[in-house]
Structure formats: structure tokens, C-alpha cells
Nucleic acid binder design. Structure first.
Lengths: 325, 325
DNA sequence: CTGTTAGCGCGTTCAT
DNA sequence: ATGAACGCGCTAACAG
């Protein structure tokens, strides 16, 4: 910047004002300085600026796994909005590892990001609270933390779970199995709760329910076992679409036709869902909207210094395809 | 840091040395300072450090679309390695837009990243060259730029294209259609070139080839048209797996059984490929290895100040499944 | 082993 | 409309 100043015959201050579009600069010098800047290929150092202003123009997005379509969609939407507002984002994977989650949160703190979006934190309340102090602005996605000033975006999985259960009940199914995903999953428990709300007696037979890892493999293994043990199951509600795909594979192996013998429903509506055979009836989670909303809340929080713990609920929507008509 | 120094009764310099694990500090003071640091929750400012050292500990990863599994896999592998080495990464989407690509490259420059990985750049040679000056270290993925000191990682799509063509020829197919993807795609042209190398006369009838957008929709529409116009096509080589899925849908609609009437091969081996029906014969591109290799080259370049334009070729591998046995 | 001096590149404040 | 002085939090290079 000193270079520019010298070449333009002005002070660094003047250059700074030109770069930042301050209005107390004469048109003449402004243009002269601009020209030199472009000719030189000068790039103002946002890092020096950050030191001076205490704002870095960077945000952190922390997800379990950015290659999981669930999070990559969210990340994309968030990055898109951030870009429009002139922010850059640090992308951090936790790999479902609490230790690593703590580490990246700390490193983002050291990088002095202006705020973070944290998806599906695996930390317990105390750890999370501790890891978040030091971060001026935070948005939590798919995770509640009471008495904390971070904003929150939640997918209404109770409503989604209710919708899938209602659908299979209306189709006349009586014995409805559930592949409920990981035992510790918050989303999983919400979806189960949703299933229950539409049952007459508010409960379901536990022997029709089984936990499984949230993968094709998990759905295949546990689904096969469940269908063998409870042969009169005629509909299967799955934790997510991958589990549903696994369950369908298991059905094929057991010579059960989907949906004639067993109807299968997924959850999330990842791109894959429409493309498998039979195409998946599933609950569409608007990830795009989720990511956009999270970033919107974060920017709003940064701009207005508003620290109210806003909370935004995203509504999923049942999509009826061929696996459970 | 001044706080810490005061509380510990030492100079800021001593604190700095403790933080940076310098070895000319007595065990006693080191521990005393450490204790205070932990009690205080002090976080060294990497941004101030960056100003002083001219190194930020941050890298940029620029991709067309981080929600595309192709790039999200690469990004994950790159981030994984970067994390292990203590770097944070800025993730930037270009949305296939040259303007935006230029913008993010500039903003990364302003953020003073230590290096960047740029995937599938849409810029022409001159633009790219210009956008890269100012970046101390760069790695290009799936893009050549001659006479430039950036490292390069390329997938050997000629070999991959040859492998798929060889496979269907050996299966006895005579009339082999090609859904070649976007006309301007570098990868696409390489794959076509690969197909050609294993043909006897080194060429293929143009009427069996059609360009299409690299999506399910593209494969479905153009695939349907091609099969209608050239009914004796018995095998279809597709630009990527999504196109292949679209082509399979088109076959179903035309009452052509896959693979009995028409064999279909994809490319990339995205997670979807094994899960559709019939499962896709495709060419596996080791994205994980690609991303890892790109980051390895970048870190190596940073560490050794080595500016040789290293180039690393990743070999894809044919995976035979049911769509083209 | 520890502290002092100087400066990284910029923005804020207040004069001119 | 322009500029000088100062400080942001840290480290490199020495000095003690």
C-alpha cells in the first residue's frame, strides 16, 4: 500500500480511503489511485485489515462429513449466500469425532472468524457450551442448546416421522417395521417420536424396531434380520434413504417384492432417492433452505449484533414414489 | 497476550515462545505460562501472527460445485490431509462461472492463503495465468497449463475411455453409441479419445455419438433420441454415471432391457453407481486419491519452496457390474 | 534463558 | 479533501 501511495504521490491514508470507497476523496485523486492499483495488481491485505478492524470477513462451517450429500447441500447453500455478502468460509470436517470437533472449533477461534455454523454437533451440552464461548456468533443446525445465545435451525423431524407413518397406515399396513438408525441420533429419536404420534395407542411394538448404522450396509444387514424375525412386517420405515436402499436389497435377497410384499420408505430425499429401483417414497428435507437459513441467521446476527437465540424450523415434506405407494 | 504476560510476570516475548514451543524456555516458566494460558482460555491470534510471519496457515480449495460428489470427495480428502498438517481450508464454489472463479481467486489472494488447489478451471490459459500470479503456490486438478510453475493432478481419462471401450468390444458389441457429455468438456474429449484408441480404424461413426449435459436428464433425453435414431446400437458408453442412469431410464421407456438389449456403461463410479438397478459398469476414478495427491503436492510445494511443475497422473479403473457385464 | 526494539499492513482519530 | 500519529497482536533479530 505504501508502494501505491508513493507512486500516486499521496499518503497511505488516501489509498486506504480509495480502497474502502470512502466518500471524502476528490474524484481526481480517486481515479489516479485506482489506475495505479489496477496497474500494479495490488491486493489489499484482509489479514492486516482484520488486525485493525477486528473483523476478518471469514466464517466457519463445521460438518461431520462434507462428502455426505446431506451436508454438502447445506454447505453449498451457505457458501452461496456468504459469497454474495463478501464472506469466505472455512470448511471443517469433524469425521464424527468429538475430539476433532473441539480442535477445529478452537482453530477457527484462533483464525478469528466472524461467526460459525455448526451442524449436528456430537458434543454434550457442557462441552459444546465451553467450545462456543470465544465465538462471537454461532448458528447450530440440527442441535438444541438451551440458555445459549446461538441461533438454531432445526428440521422438524417429528412432523416428518409422522407423515411417513401416516402414509403407510393409510395404505392399510398393520405391521410396520422401523429401521431407526443410530441409537444416539437426535434426528432418529425425533423421527421415531413422530411415528408414534400417529399411532392409536401412542406406542409401537419394540420388536418391530431395530437400530442400525445410517448406511446402505446397515439397512441391508439389520433390515434382513428384522424381516426374517418378523415375517409379517409389510411396511418398513427407514432412518434415511441409504438405509432404505439397503433394506430393499435385503428384500430382494429374501424374495420379497417391493412394494407388493413390503413397502419401504426412506428419509431425506437425497438425489439418489429418485434414481434407484423402485424409486423411493421418502420425506424430502429441504437442505438448500436449511443451509440458506442458517447463513441468513448468522449474517443477521453479525450485522445487528442481535444476540437473541432465534430458532428456525424447517418443514420436510413427504414425497410419494414407487417403493411405498 | 499482554494479559498473559502480566499475569505470569514475564514479557510477551516469553509467552510467544511458549505458545510456539520454542526450546529456549526453562521448564518452570513454561509450565507457569501454560497454566495461565489454559486458565484464561487465551487463543493466540493467527491473524496477527500472519501479519508478522507472512504465513497464514490457510489454504484455498476452489471447485465448480462442492455438492457434486465428484468434488466433495476430492475436497474431503484434501481437507483431511490439510487438517493433519494444521491448515484450515477456504472452500469456494465457482458455480461453473468464470467471473465468479476470478472473484474467488482474488479474494483468496486478499486473504493471503498460503496456497490453493484449483479444480476444473473454466478459465482460458491467459486468464488463468493472470489469476494465478499473486498466488505463491498452486495445484491444478484436471486442467493443464503449460509453462507454469503450478503442480498438476490429472486423471488419465484416455486410459479410462480406452478401458470401457475395450470392455464392450470384448463382449462382442459392434454398434457402440456414445453419450459424450458437454462439448467443451476436457475430460469428455479425453474419454472419447480413449474410446478411439482401441477401435481398429481409430475412428468412430459420428452418428453414433451425441453430446449431452452431464446429468440424468441429459442422459435420458439425448439417450432416448440416439437409441431411436440408431436402433441397432447395442452398447452405450456414457460420459458419467448420471448420464448412464438417464440412459437406462430411456431404455426402460423404449422397452429395451439393460443389459440384454443394450449394455450401458458409466464413468466415475460415484456412490450411486453400485446402488441403481441394474448396478452400473463404470470406470472408477479414485477421487480420494486425487484430492489427497493434490494436497500432498501443495504442502510439499509450500514446505520445500520447490517450484517445479510436478505432475501426477491418477489411473482410473474399470469396474464391471451388471449394466454391461 | 529472558527481554528489548522494531515492524508486519492497515484503519481510527484528529488535525490540517 | 488530505495526512500524521498511533495501535491492532504478534514475531524476528538481536541484546543482555
Amino acid at each position: 500500500m505504501a508502494d501505491i501511495a508513493r507512486k500516486a504521490g499521496v499518503s497511505v491514508m488516501t489509498v486506504s480511503k480509495v480502497v474502502n470507497n470512502k466518500d471524502d476523496i476528490s474524484q481526481a485523486t480517486r481515479e489516479r489511485v485506482q489506475t495505479i492499483i489496477e496497474k500494479t495488481g495490488y491486493r489489499p491485505s484482509h489479514i492486516a485489515r482484520g488486525l485493525a478492524t477486528n473483523r476478518t470477513g471469514t466464517l466457519g462451517v463445521v460438518v461431520p462429513d462434507n462428502a455426505n450429500p446431506f451436508f454438502s447441500e447445506i454447505t453449498r447453500a451457505a457458501e452461496h449466500l456468504a459469497y454474495a455478502e463478501g464472506y469466505n468460509i472455512f470448511l471443517c470436517n469433524t469425521s464424527e469425532d468429538a475430539e476433532r470437533e473441539l480442535t477445529v472449533l478452537r482453530s477457527l477461534e484462533e483464525k478469528r472468524v466472524d461467526g460459525i455454523i455448526l451442524c449436528s454437533s456430537r458434543l454434550d451440552d457442557a462441552e459444546l457450551r465451553a467450545a462456543l464461548t470465544g465465538h462471537p456468533h454461532t448458528v447450530l443446525v440440527n442441535r438444541r442448546l438451551d440458555d445459549h445465545n446461538s441461533a438454531t435451525v432445526m428440521v422438524d423431524d417429528i412432523a416428518g416421522g409422522a407423515a411417513t407413518m401416516r402414509h403407510v397406515l393409510q395404505a392399510g399396513h398393520q405391521v410396520i417395521g422401523m429401521l431407526a438408525g443410530p441409537e444416539f441420533s437426535f434426528s432418529g429419536s425425533q423421527r421415531l417420536k413422530g411415528h408414534r404420534t400417529v399411532l392409536e395407542d401412542g406406542r409401537y411394538p419394540l420388536e418391530w424396531m431395530a437400530h442400525c448404522s445410517p448406511t446402505v450396509q446397515g439397512g441391508y444387514e439389520v433390515g434382513g434380520r428384522l424381516l426374517t424375525q418378523q415375517p409379517n412386517i409389510s411396511a418398513l420405515l427407514c432412518f434415511n434413504d441409504l438405509v432404505a436402499v439397503g433394506a430393499i436389497l435385503a428384500c430382494k435377497e429374501l424374495n420379497l417384492a417391493v412394494p407388493q410384499d413390503v413397502a419401504v420408505a426412506g428419509y431425506d430425499d437425497i438425489p439418489l432417492a429418485a434414481l434407484v429401483t423402485p424409486s423411493l417414497t421418502t420425506c424430502h428435507v429441504p437442505l438448500d433452505e436449511t443451509g440458506h437459513e442458517a447463513m441468513r441467521l448468522l449474517l443477521h446476527q453479525i450485522k445487528d449484533e442481535q444476540t437473541a437465540g432465534e430458532i428456525s424450523i424447517i418443514q420436510p415434506q413427504l414425497v410419494i414414489r414407487k417403493s411405498a405407494p
